[in-house]
Design a protein around this nucleic acid. Structure first.
Lengths: 199, 199
DNA sequence: TAGTCATAATGACCATGGTCATAATTGACA
DNA sequence: TGTCAATTATGACCATGGTCATTATGACTA
């Protein structure tokens, strides 16, 4: 038996896939909501039962991809200094965005003040990422790499802020993808970590 | 004699003032471009000769107010530690946004990848702010407050990134105005500056 | 002053995002 | 199986942002 919930979930998935395919093919702006609805096999109005507005589709799409990147990043986390672990994680996110920078730009634009239903998912994801990073900080403290009196969550926030700034600089075409990761983000994080060494 | 340039400048100013007044009264979204044009005394299409799109009006409006905040902040800069000087500057920006948080949210949303004609102005303003902050860093180094081998521009960027994150947290309703400035931004900047002390 | 041309202004027009009254579907319960 | 309230879907419709062919303006020259 196919439950209501399952049907809804199926439609949500179809809309997500249709949106992602079209955004990739034609970009965010040029894609119309009616095209997406048609491709997903639903009526034009139905789309708005699954996303509050067009922008909310971006959260639907990126939530899935970014969750995967978090999982993958944590799974393949290297041993070694905190700086390298952070870069490893963030590099994974950059790869997600690099699949479609145009669409990523639209997504990042919507991040400040995001409050649609799907945006909530992304916010929760960010929170959980911060918690994980905070955990990495604590591990670095445990192995004596980092001063024990650094508030882990605060450092996690700062690291995230620097990551977000580098991301914005890249998407704003102020640097290349590689440049954003390597000179920019690496040196930013290094400067933040400088002087926080253990003992 | 009234030159063409003067007429254009006058229209630009009228559009800017009309936009600001209406955005304050009704918010960004609910204000229509035709209302703004009418209030400025121009035809609906004329507006788009002065702003590439509705969002570009935000840059027209905020460029003026943020420039003033930069000037004022630098003019009244306190003596004392770098941390206090940075907070003084950033507090000025928060005050600008606090005049109309709803509109500020729309503005900040448009910042990533801003490329309209008026957006250029704002980008230049950010660059000049970074240069000024970099100057403050150098002065702190000169007075021995900060290690001499810290790259000034890099620290300026990091400080700005932390400011931007705090701003986003406030506009995203994750903290109050005071909370964004005092526990959040202050402790972020303090953590960044920790361990960079001179000598 | 009349003539000419680049620049600026206009507003009818169009495509699209989003709404909402109506219709269809579902499944709990008898 | 039949009933019916609740949930879900539909697409005609509307308001708005943005375009563009047309018109107006004004700075020149002769």
């Amino acid at each position: 038996m196919v439950t209501r919930e399952a049907r809804k979930e199926d439609k949500r998935a179809r809309l997500r896939d249709a949106a992602w395919a079209l955004f990739r093919e034609k970009g965010f702006e040029p894609t119309t909501t009616k095209e997406i609805a048609a491709r997903a096999g639903v009526a034009s109005g139905t789309l708005f039962l699954y996303a509050r507005d067009k922008a909310d589709l971006l959260f639907l799409v990126f939530h899935e991809r970014l969750s995967a990147a978090v999982d993958e990043g944590l799974r393949t986390l290297p041993d070694g200094p905190l700086l390298e672990q952070l870069l490893h994680l963030f590099a994974g996110f950059f790869r997600v965005y690099a699949e479609a920078p145009e669409v990523a730009r639209a997504f990042v634009k919507e991040l400040p003040g995001a409050d649609g239903p799907n945006a909530q998912l992304t916010n929760r994801l960010t929170m959980s990422l911060l918690t994980h990073v905070s955990g990495l900080v604590q591990r670095a403290q445990a192995r004596g790499e980092l001063a024990a009196d650094v508030p882990p969550m605060l450092l996690a926030q700062n690291a995230f802020a620097l990551y977000f700034f580098a991301l914005t600089a890249w998407l704003g075409r102020m640097t290349t993808l590689e440049g954003a990761l390597d000179p920019l983000l690496r040196s930013s994080l290094a400067l933040q970590l400088r002087g926080l060494s253990g003992k």
